[in-house]
Design a binder for these strands. Structure first.
Lengths: 142, 142
DNA sequence: TATTTGCTATATAATTGATATAACAAATAG
DNA sequence: CTATTTGTTATATCAATTATATAGCAAATA
């Protein structure tokens, strides 16, 4: 499971981390019970601040994707509960396509394709987090 | 076509305006060629600043939903072009449902229901913008 | 010509995103 | 038990974003 950070993106870093972990769970690369790297570890790998990763984990816990414990770290544990505003967000997104003239069937087709791409098993999980910056940072901490 | 502003929402006001206009277009309440209220008019109706409405209109124009002219004001004119990152955003949203254990067919069903709700004609458009604040503000401008 | 309108330019204040230190508390490893 | 790792909390700083407040300019219209 690789995570790529784009520091120049308009999407906040903590949101990028959240989204990619959610996708990892959806893909089945992060199964329930899987342990995630520690906050400090991820922050070091990405070369970003501890609090940025913490914010992502905190968000994922509040939204019911993880459970965070003391020494154990974050563990994948979906609650089975969809966010209350999920359908509202879906409506906004689908409306965007309708407004641009895409037929409803075409939109449904795209949803099915995206879902198929996510549920398409074939992918043996590698289970490591990876830096996305183009410059090779020296791994300190001797 | 009514627009409701929730000043306390975590979603920025200009984004609320954008989303609701996009939904209005999707619903067919705002047909191509329809003129929208002037920036100053909408701002006065909502009791918000001119620039906030301007930002929403500017965004809608950049994303290909409106064309804005001098004295004519904003006119609904979808470009037919979906945003490049639309599928990526869809993937993130659908992944959220998959990660919480919803079966793919259930998700597709929800997409179809949301689309049906949007394309369900029945709704004669009223064509006016409306304040959402619960307190009746005095309409100044003497 | 006078008004309306979009547009631009500042300026200010509150909030958010990200970083930087520092310290505390709980769980684990030795 | 001791030392380390880990999540957590508390500050502080800086930049960008969100929203507001004025002000003025230019184009289109009546």
């Amino acid at each position: 499971m690789l995570i790529f950070i784009e520091p120049e993106s308009e999407k906040p870093i903590y949101q990028q981390i959240r989204d990619q972990i959610v996708e990892g769970i959806a893909r089945g690369e992060l199964l329930p019970g899987t342990g995630l790297p520690s906050i400090r570890q991820l922050a070091a790998d990405f070369g970003i601040n501890l609090h940025t990763v913490n914010k992502a984990y905190e968000l994922l816990e509040r939204q019911g994707f993880l459970q965070v414990r003391r020494k154990t770290g974050a563990v994948v544990q979906p609650s089975g509960r969809l966010a209350e505003d999920w359908e509202a967000r879906l409506s906004t997104l689908l409306a965007e396509a309708l407004a641009q003239g895409l037929p409803a069937e075409e939109i449904v087709g795209r949803c099915q394709r995206v879902l198929a791409a996510l549920t398409d098993r074939e992918r043996p999980s590698g289970s490591c987090a990876q830096q996305a910056g183009e410059r090779g940072e020296k791994p300190d901490k001797p």
